[in-house]
Simulated assay, not measured.
Amino acid sequence: MADTTLDLTADAPTLTAKLVDFPSESGQEKPLADAIEHELRKLAHLTVDRYGNNIVARTNLGRAERVILAGHIDTVPIADNVPSRLDDDGMLWGCGTSDMKSGVAVQLRIAQTVAEPNRDLTFVFYDNEEVAAHLNGLGKVAEAHPDWLEGDFAVLLEGSNAEVEGGCQGTLRVLLKTTGERAHSARSWMGSNAVHSAAPILAKLAAYEPRRPVIEGLEYHEGLNAVRIEGGVANNVIPDECTVTVNYRYAPDLTRDQAIAHVREVFADCDIAEFVVDDHSGGALPGLSHPAAAAFMAAVGGSALPKFGWTDVARFGELGVPAVNYGPGDPVLAHKRDERVAVERITHCEVRLRSWLTD
């Protein structure tokens, strides 16, 4: 039987390896949530609450400021990259090493070792980040128990190569549907091919020039891409339906409505039978001028970078809590079969966070 216990006294790289070897694909996080809750309840300085497979632990020391350290405990599907392994170059390999069990390990180490922080702390461990937005555990906690997430500043330990990444891009998924008329492929002129009707959509995408706006000194890079195309009935039938799934990753200077309007404009002269917004999460502005963010930047050092991708800093922004991304993982390696993280970066993030919370 697999070992389902966690040792929070282990160093952060060792704890990362243990978390990686503890499978928790999206929708299957309960055993890991159980183990995290069990260990956190042993810590007398924390009050622990649970909602579904989401764990929230807090200090209540009456400090002037409350900081939230948050991270998701799920991973994308395992791709023959578990168990973890440590190579001679100090790289820890395995599913979730970068996204984001190394960050979760740092959270757990801070929870275990920092009993009297200079700021009150809230630790959030949540499920279903890697799937559709409506399943996101942080969102469910925010809806059911918003008081659990009250704070002055939040650090999301998503992989950022141990550099502060400001804000995040929005992500919009749209289904563009074309229609035609079925016919036998031997008499194709008697029908209308819906797959062929999707060609102008693909041409627009191939020619699209994404924006690269500079926001608060950070340059974001947008993207508009087809990520799936579906159509066809049988090998001898002219298809009467086709759907192109388009993903728009947009800079946080656009609102959700503006993002939808932009995509509609791009395809305005295409023959689209139906335009369906399938999934949508808005972005978050960097907010690095906020005093708490400035203090954090001064403590951890380095230069702020834009976040290419969507993260839950956007959810904290909606709650009125300024937030940044700061974690040991490499975002470029997230979701890859050869996912890995530098052990040195795990230790670096832990040391920097502990120093900020205790000095």
Score class of each variant (00 low, 15 high):
I68C: 05
I229K: 05
M91F: 15
G302M: 08
T311A: 06
V276K: 14
G167A: 02
S160G: 13
G90H: 08
A162T: 12
R85I: 00
L135M: 12
D49V: 03
M91W: 15
Y250W: 12
T113K: 15
L224P: 13
L254K: 15
A142I: 02
V266W: 14
T16E: 08
D7H: 14
D279N: 15
A186N: 09
T255K: 07
G167W: 07
K140D: 02
D89K: 14
P331H: 05
V131N: 02
D253M: 07
E230I: 05
L108Q: 10
V233R: 01
D7Q: 09
A133F: 15
G327P: 08
R315E: 00
R58P: 06
A251C: 12
G223T: 07
K140S: 02
S303C: 00
T122A: 10
A314Y: 12
A259K: 09
D49A: 06
E130C: 00
V106D: 02
K204I: 00
L121R: 04
G302R: 08
G232E: 05
D147Q: 15
E241R: 13
G52S: 09
K177T: 12
R119K: 14
R63D: 00
G283P: 04
A64R: 11
E318T: 08
W148F: 01
F316V: 02
